[in-house]
C-alpha cells in the first residue's frame, strides 16, 4: 500500500529536498495525485520551474484558515490573526504554526482520498519540535475542539499504511548517528514505518568506477561506517556528479522507486 503522507527528514545537507522532489515525481509517474510540500514558505527554484505539483501554504495562512473554520467566520479569523498579540505569539512559538500546518496537510488528505503528500520536512531538530508539539499542545489545551483535532491528527499519522518517514543521511559518522536518533524518535512517537537511507553513496557511483585515489579513500570510510552501523542491508542512493537537477533526478530515480515499493 502506498502511504498517503511521506515525511522526508534528516539533518541539514543530506538532500531532503532532492529526495522529496524525486519521490513526488516518481509517485506522479505511477499515476498518483501526489503533491510536494515544505514547511518553508519559499519553494526551491528547481521544483518551481519543472512544474512539480505542489501544495504550499504558510503557517500564518494556514492558521487563519483553521481559526476561521473553528469560529465559523473567516472574517473573524482574519481579525484575530491581525491582532499584534497573536502575531507575536505565533512568532515566539514556531511549532504552533507548524502543527497547524501539518493539520492542514492531513485534513487535505482526509478530504481527498486520492491525494498523496510528500513533506520536505525541516531539519531534524525542528522536525522533532513539530511532532512533539502534538503532545505538548494537547497537554496545554487539555480538552476542547483543539484537542479533538490533535487526536485526529495523531490517529491519522499512526494509522497503519498512512504515514511513512524517510530519514536521509550521508555516509558520515555524525550524520548516521543523528539519523538513527531521529528514527528512534519517530518510532517512539508511534510512526513505526520509518526508514533510514544513505544518500550520496559512492557505491554504484561513477566515482567508484574511476578508481581515483580520492574516491577510494572516501569509499573506504563509507564502507567502514555502513559496517559499523547497519547489520542488515541499507538502502543507498548514489551520488550524482552534476549540478543539473533533471540529470540528478533521472539518475537516482531507480533507487527512489525502491523506497516506494517496499515498506
Amino acid at each position: 500500500m502506498t502511504p498517503r503522507l511521506i515525511i522526508v527528514s534528516g539533518k541539514g545537507g543530506v538532500g531532503k529536498t532532492t529526495i522529496a522532489h524525486a519521490l513526488t515525481k516518481s509517485l506522479r509517474a505511477e499515476g498518483y495525485k501526489a503533491f510536494y510540500t515544505s514547511f518553508d514558505q519559499s519553494c526551491p527554484p528547481e521544483i518551481l520551474t519543472d512544474g512539480t505539483p505542489r501544495f504550499i501554504t504558510s503557517p500564518e495562512e494556514s492558521s487563519e484558515i483553521y481559526i476561521g473554520l473553528k469560529l465559523n467566520s473567516p472574517l473573524l479569523a482574519k481579525w484575530v490573526m491581525k491582532a499584534p498579540f497573536f502575531k507575536a505569539l505565533f512568532q515566539v512559538l514556531p511549532p504552533l504554526g507548524h502543527m497547524i500546518l501539518l493539520g492542514h496537510y492531513i485534513k487535505e488528505l482526509e478530504d481527498n482520498p486520492d491525494h498523496y503528500i510528500v513533506i520536505d520536512s525541516p531539519a531534524s531538530g525542528h522536525a522533532m519540535s513539530m511532532i512533539s508539539s502534538l503532545n505538548n499542545f494537547k497537554e496545554i489545551f487539555k480538552l476542547g475542539v483543539l484537542v479533538d483535532d490533535i487526536n485526529r491528527m495523531n490517529s491519522f499519522l499512526k494509522k497503519e499504511g498512512n504515514t511513512r518517514v524517510i530519514i536521509s543521511s550521508i555516509p558520515t559518522e555524525m550524520s548516521v548517528e543523528e539519523g538513527l536518533d531521529l528514527k528512534k524518535f519517530f518510532i517512539k512517537k508511534g510512526i513505526e514505518n520509518t526508514e533510514l537511507i544513505i544518500n550520496n553513496s559512492l557505491n554504484n557511483s561513477e566515482v567508484k568506477d574511476s578508481k581515483a585515489p580520492l574516491a577510494m579513500k572516501k569509499l573506504e570510510i563509507e564502507k567502514e561506517i555502513l559496517e559499523r552501523y547497519f547489520e542488515k542491508e541499507v538502502r543507498l542512493i548514489p551520488q550524482v556528479f552534476s549540478h543539473d537537477t533533471k540529470e540528478i533526478l533521472k539518475k537516482i530515480s531507480p533507487s527512489i522507486k525502491g523506497i516506494l515499493s517496499e515498506g
Binding site: 561513477e206 566515482v207 574511476s210 581515483a212 574516491a215 556528479f241
Partner: peptide, 17 residues
C-alpha cells in the same frame, strides 16, 4: 590529491567546481 585524481572524470568535476 594525487596525480591520478586529476585524471578521473568525477573527481575532475569536483576540482573544477
Amino acid at each position: 590529491l594525487e596525480e591520478d585524481d586529476f585524471e578521473a572524470t568525477p573527481v575532475k568535476y569536483f576540482i573544477e567546481r
